[in-house]
Design a binder for these strands. Structure first.
Lengths: 231, 231
DNA sequence: CTATGGATGTAACGTTTGTTACCGATCTTA
DNA sequence: TAAGATCGGTAACAAACGTTACATCCATAG
């Protein structure tokens, strides 16, 4: 039953590093459910009882949130190997916080959180791996969110740009470097309109703080930039 | 060595639910380090090698980040029972992402991440508890950050207010309720200046969307509010 | 009851930002 | 190389916002 999916499952971040045979044994041991969904079907419905973590085996799905205002907002897209529900699983939530909807016909395997933290005499090594993987996945999500919060908390556009450029400078170690994002992506990341971003960057260029051409940037005065970031 | 601290440790979210004796055995087994610091001493220095998770036993400390701009920003305060370094521990970071500084003389116990995920034949039950606690702590942090990102991503003040009020409405189930935050706190939470928040709330009152007096709020028209949140 | 201090509302002003529309530069593909 | 697509810069205007300073409300102690 699980055989045909083992390869996909092993590529997912949660099961990465496991032996094929152990995985198979484990799935049988916890009798993981494999379910097929057709396009537009609800894989999980926000508010329903939460029981198992899901892993996409085939097809595409999207995590959709009904926000406080009643709008349907796409949180993210899921591809084969992607997990969903892992945060709800361990934070003590008993209901799905968001809905998951199949975009195409979709195959999903459901795994009980207890299968990850639970006891299973024969599989101690695998368990340890699973637990480490799970902790790593959630920690990384938290760190990404943390970085996002840092950027979103800066109120001025200039402040965001300065912060971003200094981060890049710190990372690359040179005053001249290439931005990994184009203007549109950078504007999205900083959560500002692209023309406003362009305008502010040009002002900074006019003031002699930086030079740039497209994605190539040069910081003229690191100290001055730093003093701006204090605002 | 650990005896005098067991009570404190057991109250921390990580060790909550453990038996005193098991905890003691475990601490001895992993030979957890207890270290004392005097005021203003660095407990951890950003950039240094990361090895162990810390838990404050006595005193107060602060997590401080040297941001990209070189400023020292207080991320949060730590009291007895509080953990630090738990996100770095499992996300694969090998360096401290922030510094931790003692605010008063401080006692700290350091615990290796391997003590939590690692094997220890005699302590399987405790391990399972520790792991569940750890997953729960990190998941909850991630969820809190997630909520923060949702709010920070809303660009207009009105949008934030609407979102917040609808969330409260959904939570309380009544159109009339009391806000759990005062204006200052709400303004901080929404990351806007307090007068701007007040102004916008008053405009909404003038437009008949809501009524309020201090922390007592009444939503006059849920549908209209929802339609505003779509912007 | 009245004085005090903290919390909240209000007003005015200048600045920053969002919006839209358009232009030119650069890249891509036939 | 020409056509079209994509990307980035620019401008002008209105709207939203930050800032400051002050008035008003309310709780509480004296």
């Amino acid at each position: 039953m699980y055989k045909e999916w083992l390869k996909v499952i092993l590529k997912s971040p949660l099961f990465q590093g496991m032996e094929e045979e152990q995985l198979n044994a484990m799935l049988e041991c916890i009798s993981a459910r494999i379910v097929k969904y057709s396009k537009d079907e609800f894989i999980a419905l926000a508010g329903d009882d939460f029981k198992e973590i899901g892993l996409i085996l085939a097809g595409e799905a999207m995590i959709v949130k009904e926000d406080a205002a009643g709008n349907r907002v796409i949180i993210s897209m899921l591809k084969p190997g992607d997990l969903f529900g892992e945060m709800a699983a361990f934070s003590g939530k008993s209901k799905w916080p968001s809905s998951v909807i199949a975009q195409q016909s979709c195959t999903v395997i459901f795994i009980s959180p207890r299968a990850i933290v639970g006891q299973c005499e024969k599989l101690c090594v695998s368990h340890q791996l699973l637990i480490t993987n799970m902790l790593s996945i959630i920690s990384q999500k938290a760190l990404i969110l943390n970085r996002k919060v840092e950027y979103l908390s800066i109120r001025s556009i200039r402040g965001k740009i300065v912060y971003y450029l200094l981060e890049q400078y710190k990372h690359k170690g040179k005053k001249t470097f290439t931005l990994p994002l184009n203007r549109n992506e950078l504007a999205d990341f900083l959560n500002v309109p692209r023309p406003s971003l362009s305008r502010e960057m040009c002002r900074m260029r006019d003031e002699g703080l930086i030079d740039f051409h497209r994605s190539a940037v040069k910081i003229n005065n690191v100290e001055k930039l730093r003093s701006l970031a204090e605002l």
